[in-house]
Design a protein around this nucleic acid. Structure first.
Lengths: 216, 216
DNA sequence: AATTTTTGCCGTACGTGTACGGTACAACTT
DNA sequence: AAGTTGTACCGTACACGTACGGCAAAAATT
């Protein structure tokens, strides 16, 4: 059988992939996001341009690998900034989110604002949440708020709502970067607080396809 | 002087531009969004590829011209669907917005989810709102809600908040198109209602850079 | 009327992402 | 051990967006 040989080859493949990611990071650091081209990347690691496609299906997939590293950092920063009070903790997570998105627009863009067409129906709303460590942290803090009696309802649905609002403000600020009303981060916080107020007003049901209710 | 000659030339220029836009529309209709390339467009109107750049700075600018047409349609549909009750009218606008965004993801993308780098600091948050007829309609309906006593505060700030929430849900659904909880539009409506609830809970101040307030 | 400037259009060329086909070597099967 | 299959890598080629420079005709200036 020689499955250990196969494993070794898998490992080498992973190592080479990691080397490519490292080179991509270096390229971006040295020349900016536009400096990352398949050809330069291939040259950097000593391969022919097309060989890169043995490890990534796409340029998009390379950008994704970079962005996922960045998002891991976001999760770590969130964890390092965890006040005791549940609401304060929630807002701290939002602050980190805003700082990350506004400070790393390219990475944010490739993860949340670009087309995910390849590998067909795998790119789901659900999967995005499941694989995103930062989202898991949001869920935890929502649960803390529920335990503290500040919020009521389905934790996952609440977390998704908060995420949606955070994403809405951050992505608008990335697309239209000249925010004329002071600190953009303050705007994100304001939207977050607005969502919290709305969520606190009633019990949030799980996500199903019931029609929404009019608040009046 | 011959300013009328200059005017005539300006007019011809505008006509040619319009012809290019029409050809671009036709191309997209016939071959899809990826079928629109500068070369094909130039061939279609009988020019050399580079001549297109006498009328558009960019490919992005062509896509923008197409998208703006689509957004004008959105505004018209909004106006044609204007119930009397202020809240119902507000929700109707949101419905149109959701249907438009989810039904025209390419156009939505080019307007709200792609980089606006050229012609430097002109692309502002503010400008985006000012030039967007649909946003003006939102403002009007917010004012109706304020007049009816359903909402309190600065109409523009409220409209921006609602827009942000609508954009957050629509853009997430465009990026992750496999929504596993039923009708995507219902999700957008739910987020809209959430925002309305949050906004109804207190008076909304104008957009300035004061720090947000904790709702607890 | 002579001259300068502007304008409209084009041809060429570069660097890009990537589809396609080939080739040599490693690994499995028998 | 021989034959088959798979894999890693490469070279070539294509269509793309667009920077650059040129050139004739029209317009403006003198």
């Amino acid at each position: 059988m020689s499955s250990s040989a196969a494993q070794r080859r898998e490992l080498q493949k992973a190592e080479l992939r990691a080397e490519l990611v490292a080179a991509a990071h270096a390229l971006v650091r040295e020349e900016g996001y536009d400096g990352l081209t398949i050809r330069k990347l291939a040259t950097r690691v000593g391969y022919a341009p097309m060989s890169v496609y043995s490890y990534f299906a796409d340029k998009q997939e390379i950008l994704m690998a970079l962005a996922e590293d960045a998002f891991a950092d976001l999760a770590q920063r969130m964890r390092q900034n965890q006040p005791e009070d549940p609401i304060t903790a929630m807002r701290a997570a939002l602050t980190e989110y805003a700082e990350f998105g506004l400070g790393n627009p390219n990475e944010y863009r490739t993860v949340f604002m670009t087309e995910k067409q390849k590998h067909p129906p795998e790119e789901t709303f659900e999967q995005m949440e499941r694989e995103n460590p930062a989202f898991q942290i949001i869920i935890e803090r929502v649960q803390a708020c529920i335990a503290a009696g500040v919020l009521k309802g389905d934790a996952r649905a609440i977390a998704t709502a908060l995420w949606t609002v955070a994403h809405g403000s951050v992505s608008l600020l990335i697309t239209f970067p000249f925010y004329p009303f002071g600190d953009p981060k303050a705007y994100v916080m304001r939207m977050g607080d607005l969502a919290m107020a709305g969520l606190a007003a009633s019990e949030t049901p799980p996500l199903t396809d019931e029609p929404g209710m009019c608040p009046g």
